[in-house]
Structures are given as structure tokens and as C-alpha cells.
Amino acid sequence: MNNLKTAKQLNSFPKKRSLLRLSRGSKERFTDKLFLSISLLPVVLIALLVLALWLRTQPIFESQSLWSLLLGQTWHPIKKQFGFLPFIAGTVWVTLVAMVLSVPVCLFSAIYLSEYARPSTRTIMKPLLDLLAAIPSVVYGVWGMLAIVPWIQKSFAPFMNKWLGYIPFFKVNNPTGFGIMAGGVVLAVMVAPFIIAITYEVLQAVPNGLRQASLAVGATQWETIKFVVMRQCLPGVIAGIVLGASRALGETMAVLMVVGNVPQLPTSIFDAAYPLPALIANNYGEMLTIPLYDAALMGASLILLLVVLVFNILSTLILSRIVGRTWT
């Protein structure tokens, strides 16, 4: 059927003369070359991103070593002190809290969808995840400010402080509600559609025969998932989590709006933090007015880019082996 239709479409080709009055052969050779060179753009773009940020970061190494940058704790642009450690720590804290909150929920949801849910539930979930992924970052930020921050300030933080406050990790030193926890909750929801979609695909790539092999000896469905399906999927699930983490790492606006933005080394999940993307976004306005400031901020972007690149390359390679693609 399809072929028949195609044949009809194709019949009209030779009659039309090409616009450039080139022979079809030379036109073909031209477009081949053109398309090939455009296609190399993504490869070149990655190199360009790294190169450009690297070159713009260079000036800062005249006054500071790499280690004093990465491990320095004071951020004082006017005195040319650019210690990234508080910002790196902030990024790590927010990302970790987000992943701890998000990963178990996402894995269970994806397993439910793939292994238990009826087909009708599955068909609802796809557009729902798409919508969740489509909501802009600033809207997540607004939601965080209006719903999550007050909740943490009024209920969650006092509660945790009362019962677990003797552990530094849960102590409330910052009564505003703006902090790592708020950023973590917002990010957890933001990365959920990615992690669920990837995990779901990885689970779907497990052959049914393998599930049946386990069910056939009388295993329950959960035992099958626990001992067989998850064991088979582990690399893919980890890759999905890493991909989710790299999204969380680079997320800017939503986090910036709820995380408090205080350059310090946090000790509690309720402390304010200042992740790298927030640093870049908050200070772009002044960066050309203070010497070396722009180099420092480009350096922050470079750190972010390199970490994300490593995460992405590893997980993409693993996933492409399992499901043949990573795009959801």
C-alpha cells in the first residue's frame, strides 16, 4: 500500500527541473557535502563550547592556581579572591538531596508503569510526564517559592529540628525556608519525568521471556523484579539516574529562586546554599565591570560543563547499548 503511493509520488520527479539548473547528479553531490558539513556541527559545537569557555577562563590562572580556585573558600571578586568551593559544595548538596528524594519515587513509579499498570494507565502517563517536563524552569521556581518554601519554613523544618535537630544534618540554622531542602524538592520534581521515562524504557527492553522464566518457577512478581529484572537493568537504571543528576546539576532558575544564595559551606539540609548555576546567573550583570570577574564566572560555567559532559557521555554510552537511544 505504502509502496504504491510512493511510486506515484516519485513519478513526478524527472519532469521538474531543478531550480539551479544543475544536473541531478551534481546537485546530489553538492547536497551530500552540504548535509555532511551541517551534520558535523553538533560534534564541532561540543568542542567549541569547551574551547571558548576554556579560553575565557584563562586570565584567571595568571593570579591563581587551579587548586586554589577549586578549594578556595573565600569569594571576594574585588580582592580577586575567587574560591569556588562553597559553590561546588552548594551544587553537590542540592543535587544529592534532589536525587535522594527523587530516585526511589521515580524507580517505583517506573516499575509500576512497566510491570503492573494496565495499558490505559500507561497511555495517560506519557502525556503527563511530557507536561511535567514541559513546565518552564521559572514556573517551577514560582511554585517552589509559593508552596515549598513556606511549607518547609512553617512545618517541615521545625518538625525535623524538634525531633532530629541534635544531628547537624537536620539542624535548622536558617529560619527562612529558602535553602537546600527547598531546592532539592523542586529539583526532585523537575528531574522526575526524565528518570521515570529512561527507567521505563530500560525496563521495557528486558525480554518478557526472562520475566516468565522467573515466574515459571513460582516467583512472585516483586521477586521477579527484585532478583531478575532489576539485576538485568542495573546499568541502564544507573545511567538514567546519572543523566537525571546531570540535569539537576545544571538547573539554574528554579534552584536560584528557592535556594537562598549564600556562599557558605552548608552543614544542614536547611542551610542556604549557592550552587554554581545560580552564581553565574546572579552576577552576569557585573562581570564585565570587575577585573577577572568574567573569567571566574566563565570558569564556573566550564566546571559545570565538564562535569555534565562526563556524566552525559558515560550514561549515554551505556544507554545506547541497552535501548539504542537516550532520547525520551
Binding site: G209, A213, S214, L215, G218, R231
Partner: peptide
Amino acid sequence: VTEIRKKAGLLAQRPYPLPM
């Protein structure tokens, strides 16, 4: 159902060794 399946062993069309 798990007792039933325990009672009736299955040999499928293709072998599916478990990942262990």
C-alpha cells in the same frame, strides 16, 4: 498462583538464563 507455577515447570521456546 505461585504454587501452581511451582507445580508446573516450564521449558520455553528459547532458553532464558537468569542474569546470574
